[in-house]
Structure formats: C-alpha cells, structure tokens
Design a protein around this nucleic acid. Structure first.
Lengths: 227, 227
DNA sequence: TCCGCATTCTCTGTATACACGGCGCGGGCT
DNA sequence: AGCCCGCGCCGTGTATACAGAGAATGCGGA
C-alpha cells in the first residue's frame, strides 16, 4: 500500500474517532514525523481530507480539523435526505430481492447485536454499512456513490457524539429493516418514505445528544484548541 | 497564485473545453513541462481533478481523462435531480425575493442573449451560472454546495456535446425563468416541479445530441486514444 | 510463425533540499 | 511607558533526485 494511502487512512481514522479533535492544527512536519511518512505523501493525504471536508486549509497556519456545529449537522442531513432517498429509489428499481430480504431479516434479528458487550456497537454499525453498500451497489450510480462517500465520512464522526442507548438502536434497526423490506419489494414510494422516517429520527436523536454533549462536556470553545 | 492552482485551472479548462479529450493520458513529466510547473504541484492538481471525477488514476499508467458515456450522463442527471430539487426547495424557503425576481426578469429577456453572435452563448450560460450561484447562496448549505460543485464540472464538459440551437435555448431560458419565479414566490412545490421539468428536458436534449454526436463524429473508440 | 520469458526503459511514488512568506518577539525611539 | 520597526524563526510551497514497479519489446525456442 502507498505511503499516502496509509497516511490518509491513519489521519481519517484519527479524526472520525475523535483522537484528533476539531480545531487541531495538522502541521506537515509534525504529522509526517508522527506517521512515519515524508511530507509529500502526507500533503496528498491532507489534500484528500480537505476535499472531503474533514479538514480545512487555513492560509499560513496549515490545515485544521473542522468542527461540527448544530447547523452543519442539520445541513448534512438535508443533503442526506436528498441523496439517500434517491439511492433508495434507484435501489428499489434495480435491486436483487434476495439480498435485501436477507438484510431485512438480519435487521429484524439485530437485538442480539445491540445487546452485545461492545460499547461501540461495532457489529451493529457494520450491518448498517452492509446495507449502505448494498444500496449503493443496487443503485449503480458512480456520482451518487461519490457524493455519499463524502457525507458518510462526516457522519461516522458525528455518530460518536450520539448517546447510542439500546432504545434508539432498536428503533433504528426496525427503521433499517423497513427500508430493506421496501427495497426488496421494489416499492419506490415506500422505500423513500422509510428513508425519510429513518433520517428524521436519526437527526432528532443526534441533535438532542449534541445539545447535552455541548452543555456537559465542552461548553466553551477552548476545549477545541488544546489538542 | 500557487503553481498547483494554475496547473489545476489550466488542466480543468483544457478538459472541460475538450482540448484534452477523454482517454488522453496525462503523464506527469509531460504535463509539468507543458504547463511550466514541477511535478509536485502538478500531482496535487491531478489529485484534485481525480477527486472530481474529471480524470481517473490508472495503476501504473498514470491518470487519464475520463470519458462520458450515455449511461454516465443519465446517472449524472439522476443525482442532479435529487440535489437541484433539494437546492431549489431550500432556496425557496430562505430566498431574498428581489434577487430571484430580478433573475427571472433577465431570463425572460434572454432572447437577446441567445440571438447574439457568440456561437458558444457565453452570455447566456453566464446568466445560468448566476442563477446557480444565487440558489447555492440562498440554500446556504456547504455540503450541498460541495456536492453540486463536483457535478457541475462534469456538466460544463457535457454541455459542449449538446447542439445548442436557439429553439432549445429559448425553452431553457423559459424553464429557468419559471424556476427563478417559483423560488422568488417562496413556493417550494413549484420550485421543485420547475426544476424537475428543466432537468428532464435538458437530459432529453443532451441524450439526443450525444446520439448524433457519437454516430457522426466518433463512431469508434479509437478516436479517444490518439489524443 | 507464434508463444513465452527476460531485459530494459519509462513512469510513478517517495524523500529531501531550498526558497519565500508570515507571524511573533524584542529592541529602540518617541 | 507605549508604539513602531526590524530581525529571526517556523511554516508552507516548490523543485529535484532517487528508487521501485510495471509495461512493452525483442529475442530465443518450440
């Protein structure tokens, strides 16, 4: 694997998992030393991250990890609403029914995943990713896939803010199961409706979590600067 | 201005204006010599172009200018339908009525622009861009803006394939006027409907142009390779 | 004559050295 | 004592040198 790919993957992982918090300045020499690559591939990695919006280039001061405001989360979900609904619509037309029926069944049995010991619920989120990939594959649209990819990087980072209690996750699983069943049935209207429902509930949950997160943990902006 | 920015702008211009046709291999040393920059900033420019989908990195053989198939045009407009409708919807909510009323009036008087001498209709397309920018500004959504930006780069290139006769351009102007008036009126449903109409007609026109273009000018794939 | 292998050549990927610019700090002047 | 100017350092932006990998071509054998 190329050094620039390793640097990109490492930085992206560090950002979405909050090891590098918003506001952190990513100096080239510092990061290249930390990651064990030279400045050239690191610059390529930073350019890719900036194109995805995970970092932003500040004139003279290098690139900084972007922050996530309430307004941005709402904006993100506005675009997700448009893209995910279109993806669900296209997938419902071109889908292989067996694939989505199988996914629906796994979501309907997801309570075992959610009840598991892992506090990060990796098994459950892996299943969600499987559905995302299946929808992308069925939609078969490279532009849609590309646009979705950029949004999902932000989304994984936002997810860490959410208080993922079992209650919400069980509801989320049911919503995903509804989406998968609708796509399996080839019902575009239903697939779109189910997607709208899910995104609405997800955003509502995230906004509530973000409010309590800001209130309880990082009330001032200073906490973002001493990374 | 930075050398990487100049290289990016020059290459992007060369690609969207068909001076570099699809299939052309952009070797780093060759292009860096042609553009008068060194390989490092050129690589950054190529990376940005590849992220936008105007070029694609082929393992070992460098980056090549991507081609535009009928299927890709349809895919592109599927995503545009989702994003432009969402943009129109958001713009209709947050708009400044005066801005869009003025734009609607200019589109209604656009026959003078279309009747002009310029075969490329730059004045008219500049007006279209003004509307795009106004919608983006009114929608006020950075993620939407980012996704739109990537699609529009492809679109400008596709536009060059279209046989822009006065008839279609007059109809297009009327459709844009309808969109602007709907947004000015704050009517989201109407703005979405007008956008759908316009995109449908645009795609139909482009597909017809592409068919005759492929049939009359580049029937074989060889023409893409000797760039 | 055709297929396969090896060699060579070119191109990418990476590292490093250098230049330019901005920002901060310290000293001097008012 | 406060403000302004200048010097120095750190940071990015660019150029270039080097190494490794992949593809094309040519030669030899079947």
């Amino acid at each position: 694997m190329r050094a620039s790919d390793r640097a990109y993957a490492a930085l992206k992982s560090d950002i979405v998992e909050w090891r590098l918090i918003p506001g952190t300045v990513l100096a080239e020499v510092e990061q290249s030393a930390r990651l064990g690559v030279s400045r050239t591939p690191l610059r390529e990695a930073l350019a890719r991250l900036s194109a995805e919006g995970l970092t932003a280039a500040q004139t003279g001061r290098g690139v900084v990890v972007t922050d996530i405001s309430l307004a941005k989360m709402t904006q993100l979900f506005d675009v997700r609403l448009a893209l995910d609904c279109k993806a669900a619509e296209l997938a419902a037309v071109h889908r292989d029914p067996h694939v989505f029926t199988a996914l629906a069944q796994r979501f309907e049995a997801a309570s075992s995943l959610i009840a598991g010991a892992d506090p990060d619920r990796r098994d459950y989120y892996a299943l969600v990713s499987e559905l995302d990939v299946a929808v992308d594959d069925a939609a078969d649209n490279q532009f849609l896939r590309q646009a979705q990819g950029q949004l999902r990087a932000q989304l994984v980072r936002i997810r860490r803010l959410a208080k993922d209690n079992s209650e919400r996750l069980l509801a989320s699983a049911a919503e995903h199961a509804q989406i998968a069943r609708s796509i399996a049935g080839g019902n575009t209207d239903l697939a779109i409706a189910a997607t709208k429902i899910h995104l609405h509930n997800s955003l509502a949950h995230l906004l509530a979590s973000k409010l309590s997160f800001d209130a309880g943990f990082a009330p001032s902006r200073k906490a973002h600067l001493n990374g």
